[in-house]
């Protein structure tokens, strides 16, 4: 399939939320992917920092196939061993106390927004230039006006603060958030901050 064919199909069948795809990929192994024409690439994007084990890692493929053969989906009316084991692993790794599972990062932020509302404190602060996701609540925290402006009004109570300087860190206490704000959230490593002047391609 040549480039013009997949580009034409993409434009016809997909909502135009992204520019034309860079390539039509077929398969991958480790840190390498191949497009449908057989061209090999060294993949240093990793599905936007997702493919921790690379492509088609035997641990990944075995886990998918073994669990799919056993029990894939049961709804939140039931519990399962993999669910509880992962929750326990995450509390051990993070030092946290309890876990809520979602299907994506933006949904994890949405859950955090609802949890923050339950404190009774109305404000939610996020950093200017930050990226927290694209769904409406998460978008309200994403500190990029170019992404937010077409979708105003944003979530009431959400506001941005400058990137923490030594001075502003004092205003962003990590252990006892100001009573007016339900919590402070900061992402220590941002891969998109600082130089964004047009809508970044990210999810």
């Amino acid at each position: 399939m040549n480039a013009s064919t997949f580009t034409t199909r993409f434009r016809a069948a997909m909502m135009p939320t992204v520019p034309s795809p860079l390539a039509m990929l077929s398969h991958g192994k480790g840190a390498r992917v191949w497009d449908v024409e057989g061209t090999e690439y060294l993949d240093f994007l990793g599905g936007i920092a997702v493919n921790a084990l690379g492509h088609a890692h035997p641990v990944f493929t075995r886990a998918v196939s073994a669990q799919a053969e056993r029990l894939a989906h049961i709804s939140n009316y039931f519990a399962s061993e993999p669910e509880l084991a992962l929750a326990e692993r995450l509390t051990r790794l993070t030092g946290g106390d309890a876990v809520y599972f979602t299907n994506s990062g933006t949904e994890a932020i949405e859950a955090a927004v609802k949890l923050a509302r339950r404190t009774g404190r109305p404000r939610i602060l996020s950093l200017t230039g930050s990226f927290h996701g694209r769904t409406m609540g998460a978008l309200s925290l994403t500190g990029k006006p170019v992404l937010q402006d077409p979708f105003r009004p944003l979530l009431p109570g959400s506001s941005r603060s400058r990137r923490p300087s030594r001075r502003s860190r004092r205003r962003w206490p990590t252990t006892s958030p100001p009573s007016w704000s339900s919590r402070s959230r900061a992402r220590p490593v941002s891969s998109t901050c600082r130089t964004a002047t047009s809508p970044p391609r990210e999810n």
């Binding site: 084990l53 029990l71 049961i74 790794l93 809520y100 979602t102």
Partner: peptide, 23 residues
């Protein structure tokens, strides 16, 4: 107060558990 049809399903959590164990 919150919930998800898919969130935490056995397939997703089994894979994530395996990935974290390998890491």
């Amino acid at each position: 107060q919150h919930g998800s049809t898919y969130g935490g399903n056995p397939l997703a959590t089994a894979v994530a558990g395996a990935v974290l164990a390998e890491i």
